[in-house]
């Protein structure tokens, strides 16, 4: 009996230890240490750290790029994200069925999501490029410094690129959700006279509740976690107008050499990400298809 238990526990340890050691030492501990390091002023690997309390957070509060990054994050969450989800819901409805066009679309729509973000950034830099770009080629060179160089158009132009990268993924997600609704539900609702928008609002939308919840949380994480696309497309320019929180964090780690401030920004982002995801989860908590009466 004892040896049987020993064998079982030995097996479990052998299965769990390698992964847990890696995960704890390289993921959990660094995340926790980000909180600790946010209280120090230091640069690089030097052991010369000075404890400064909440000073790094105060500095962040006073820095302009931080507020541009926050502004952009808020616009991403409240405007860009919902627009992307709305468009992809429409596209998913359009792409239903087995026609050749629908099948073609359900093949190509994932391209932008699969290719490297660096390649996507290259594509969009060159679409907007005022001297050799695709938009210039069709007579839309944009403002004097180009679409990405102008204070007013830079962020909208960046958002279009972000939408291009992500739209297909959410279309696929909603397509899968729509395909999961049994045919009888459609037939029954058509018989009852529900068509078009009415059918969507009364039948489809509530049934897609869990998919919409997943999509909302997913796009929140994606929108707040923007890094490579900003880093390669604009590096936050012009004057912070396209800055993202992670690109600013990277900038502080590398160019400014302010490791403590970078850690403080990391903490701020942990809080923002958790709070937003939690709020979304609460918002979608009630299953609209569940029985109302208790």
């Amino acid at each position: 009996m004892v040896s049987k238990n020993l064998k079982r526990n030995g097996f479990l340890l052998a299965c769990l230890l390698p992964g847990l050691i890696l995960y704890c030492s390289l993921v959990l501990v660094p995340f926790a240490r980000t909180i600790e390091l946010s209280g120090y002023r230091f640069s690089g690997v030097s052991t010369n750290r000075k404890f400064v309390g909440f000073d790094n957070f105060g500095k962040l509060w006073e820095s302009e790029p931080f507020w541009w990054a926050i502004r952009n994050g808020v616009i991403m969450l409240l405007v860009v994200g919902p627009v992307i989800l709305g468009l992809s819901m429409l596209l998913a409805h359009a792409a239903q069925g087995t026609s050749r066009l629908s099948r073609l679309m359900r093949t190509v729509y994932l391209f932008p999501n699969l290719i490297s973000l660096v390649a996507a950034a290259l594509i969009w830099r060159n679409i907007y490029n005022p001297s050799v770009g695709l938009l210039r080629g069709i007579g839309l060179p944009g403002p004097q410094n180009g679409w990405l160089g102008d204070l007013d158009t830079a962020f909208p132009a960046f958002s279009v690129a972000f939408a291009w990268v992500t739209l297909g993924f959410y279309t696929m997600l909603f397509s899968a959700g729509l395909a999961g609704i049994p045919a009888e539900v459609h037939e029954a609702s058509e018989l009852e006279g529900a068509h078009g928008l009415r059918k969507y609002l009364l039948i489809t939308r509530p049934l897609l509740w869990s998919v919409r919840r997943v999509a909302s949380v997913h796009i929140t994480i994606a929108a707040l976690g923007v890094f490579a696309l900003v880093n390669v497309m604009t590096d936050g320019e012009p004057s912070g107008r396209t800055q993202s929180l992670l690109n600013y964090l990277y900038r502080m780690m590398t160019i400014e050499g302010e490791f403590g401030k970078a850690a403080a920004l990391g903490v701020v982002m942990m809080v923002i990400t958790s709070v937003t995801s939690l709020m979304l989860w609460m918002l979608f908590r009630r299953d609209p298809t569940a029985r109302r009466s208790a």
Partner: peptide, 17 residues
């Protein structure tokens, strides 16, 4: 839970380590 946060949030301690 590790799927929720972007890896760059741990970049400073990870790099030092």
């Amino acid at each position: 839970l590790g799927m929720l946060f972007p890896n760059l949030l741990a970049a400073v301690p990870l790099f030092i380590m």
